[in-house]
Computed example of a mutant assay.
Amino acid sequence: MLSGARGCLASALRQVRVPGAGRCLHGSRRRLRPDGSQQAQAPARDFDPGLLEFLVCPLSKKPLRYEASTNELINEELGIAYPIIDGIPNMIPQAARSTRQSEKQEDPEHH
């Protein structure tokens, strides 16, 4: 008796059509308002500089500086910059780039 009920339920669920079903929610870029109408989703978020109070470099544990022109968090001491993607800092050391000139451009008097 239970298996018969499962079969009926599964059949009924296959027949139900949900508007927008099968579309990726993240790709739609639309959001429903409480009244059911749609609005365009806000563009990617900017970094909140207030977070600098809580963030430190994972390598040196020192404070970071936000550089708006490159959208990065800079560690001056180590000479590295962490990218910010959609308002979220990527603080994985392997994702950081060097901000210093190459080591080959050292002072020639040291050779």
Rank of each mutant, 00 (worst) to 15 (best):
L73V: 02
L13N: 08
E106K: 14
P89H: 00
H111F: 09
G36T: 04
S98M: 01
L51K: 11
P83T: 00
A5T: 12
T70Y: 01
P19H: 07
K104T: 05
S11H: 14
P89F: 01
S37I: 01
E67P: 00
R97W: 03
C24D: 15
E77D: 14
A95M: 08
E53R: 15
E67G: 01
G87L: 06
D35G: 09
R29A: 05
L32V: 06
L9V: 15
R31F: 12
G79M: 02
A21C: 04
T70V: 02
K104P: 00
E67F: 10
D86E: 14
L2V: 06
G20A: 09
P58Y: 06
D46H: 13
L78D: 06
N90G: 02
A42F: 08
Q105Y: 14
A21G: 12
L2P: 08
R100W: 00
P34M: 10
P89G: 00
P43Q: 07
R45M: 12
A44N: 11
A21E: 15
Y82K: 02
V16Q: 11
G20C: 06
D46G: 14
A5S: 15
H26E: 11
L9I: 15
A40S: 12
Q39M: 14
F54W: 07
V56G: 00
L78G: 07
L9A: 13
R100V: 02
V56D: 01
L73H: 01
I84D: 00
L2Q: 11
A10H: 06
V18K: 05
P93K: 10
S3L: 10
R14E: 14
Y66W: 15
L73K: 01
R97G: 04
Y82M: 02
Q15M: 08
D86S: 08
R100F: 03
E106G: 11
G20E: 06
A44E: 14
S28M: 10
R6D: 07
D35T: 09
H110K: 13
I80E: 00
S60G: 03
N90I: 11
R6C: 13
A10S: 07
R45T: 03
L78M: 09
Q39V: 15
N75C: 15
L78I: 04
H111M: 03
T70S: 13
P19S: 13
T70P: 00
D48G: 07
C8Y: 11
C24L: 05
G50H: 05
S28T: 07
A81R: 00
H111Q: 05
Q105M: 08
G22W: 06
V16H: 07
A5N: 10
D48K: 11
R30M: 12
C8M: 10
A10K: 12
A68G: 02
G36N: 09
Y66V: 09
F54N: 04
G20I: 09
P63S: 12
G50S: 14
I92E: 09
G4K: 09
S28F: 07
H26C: 03
L32F: 13
L32A: 13
A68N: 04
A44K: 11
R65A: 15
E72S: 10
N75M: 04
S11N: 14
E109A: 13
L59M: 11
D107L: 10
P93T: 02
A68L: 05
S11D: 14
H26N: 11
A42M: 09
Q15T: 06
E53D: 12
Q39L: 14
Q41S: 09
R14G: 06
L52F: 07
E53H: 11
C57P: 05
I85Y: 01
Q41K: 04
R30A: 05
N90H: 07
